[in-house]
């Protein structure tokens, strides 16, 4: 068998081994690359950057622990950015598991990195409410009807930053992190479209292709999977150089992913070259 034929019909196990190595080696040696935000991610960064300080931003956390590896880095980066810009953050969840995920980000980012932020003035955690897209529909007209207390049971009227929030239209921007239904699609359909509120967000890479139809008319921007998160982190580092030294989780994990990706690309190229050579040979021998 010639080299070409061998390459054309390479044993799957060799591919498996190379993929495993492509993941393990960069993990062990901490290899990572600098990302460059694509326009669809950059628009989200620019939106948060261009809003006047102290704007109201709604951050719904619609994911659970299984998709947290993909979505938490984006939530972290966006929350960080909002803190830097002194925006008022309103955190909520349409998923029962989202509340705990939101708490993690509040503890790790807001409380840890920005201890000067005051609960009730700079950020509020409204917690989980059942109802899915029906809830979005309701709070588009009247938020306080559904949210009479925050996640900890404090009455909404006792929270300073809630006094001038009547419904979703009072928010300057909605940035959602979602792993499925209800999620970004529903935020676009039931809040963004009818309420004319800028909506953007992040999703898992698998559901991102199904959301592209909404960009850019109905959805301001989209972070798809870890790649989207890494791009946002890159935008943040670019805008706030003090983050250059800080560990950026998505960028770090993107290292092994990028290498595995490259391996696959190389495989596809080899596969096609051998395919063409074989085809030519077959023609000659005819």
């Amino acid at each position: 068998m010639s080299v070409v034929e061998k390459l054309g019909n390479v044993d799957r196990r060799i591919i498996f081994l190379l993929i495993a190595l492509a993941v393990i080696i960069p993990l062990v040696f901490n290899i990572s690359f600098m990302e460059h935000p694509s326009p669809i991610v950059q628009t989200i960064f620019d939106k948060i950057e261009s809003l006047p300080n102290g704007s109201k931003i709604l951050l719904p956390f619609d994911y659970g622990p299984s998709t947290a590896p993909e979505l938490e880095p984006m939530a972290t980066a966006v929350t960080r950015h909002c803190c830097k810009k002194n925006h008022k953050m309103y955190i909520m969840a349409l998923w029962p598991t989202g509340q705990a995920q939101a708490l993690r980000v509040i503890e790790d980012v807001i409380e840890e990195e920005f201890p000067e932020k005051v609960y009730g003035t700079d950020y509020v955690h409204l917690g989980y409410k059942a109802g899915g897209y029906g809830l979005i529909n309701t709070i588009l007209a009247d938020l306080k009807k559904m949210y009479t207390t925050d996640a900890e049971g404090t009455h909404i009227d006792e929270i300073g930053m809630m006094s001038d929030v009547q419904n979703l239209r009072d928010f300057a921007f909605i940035c959602n992190f979602s792993a499925g239904f209800p999620g970004l699609k529903e935020w676009v359909q039931f809040a963004g479209d009818p309420g004319d509120i800028p909506v953007a967000g992040g999703t898992t890479a698998v559901s991102a292709p199904l959301l592209y139809p909404y960009y850019p008319r109905q959805m301001l921007g989209l972070m798809g999977g870890l790649k989207g998160a890494a791009e946002y982190e890159a935008a943040l580092v670019h805008g706030y150089p003090e983050y250059e030294k800080v560990y950026q989780r998505a960028i770090a994990i993107m290292g092994p992913q990028a290498i595995a990706h490259l391996v696959i690309i190389i495989f596809i190229i080899i596969g096609n070259i051998t395919f063409f050579i074989e085809k030519k040979r077959a023609k000659k021998s005819d």
Binding site: D142, K144, K145, S163, Q166
Partner: peptide, 14 residues
């Protein structure tokens, strides 16, 4: 039954 802020002119009592 409920309160709303200024500028609002509609309430749905459910």
């Amino acid at each position: 039954i409920s309160s709303v802020t200024k500028g609002v002119k509609e309430y749905v009592d459910t």
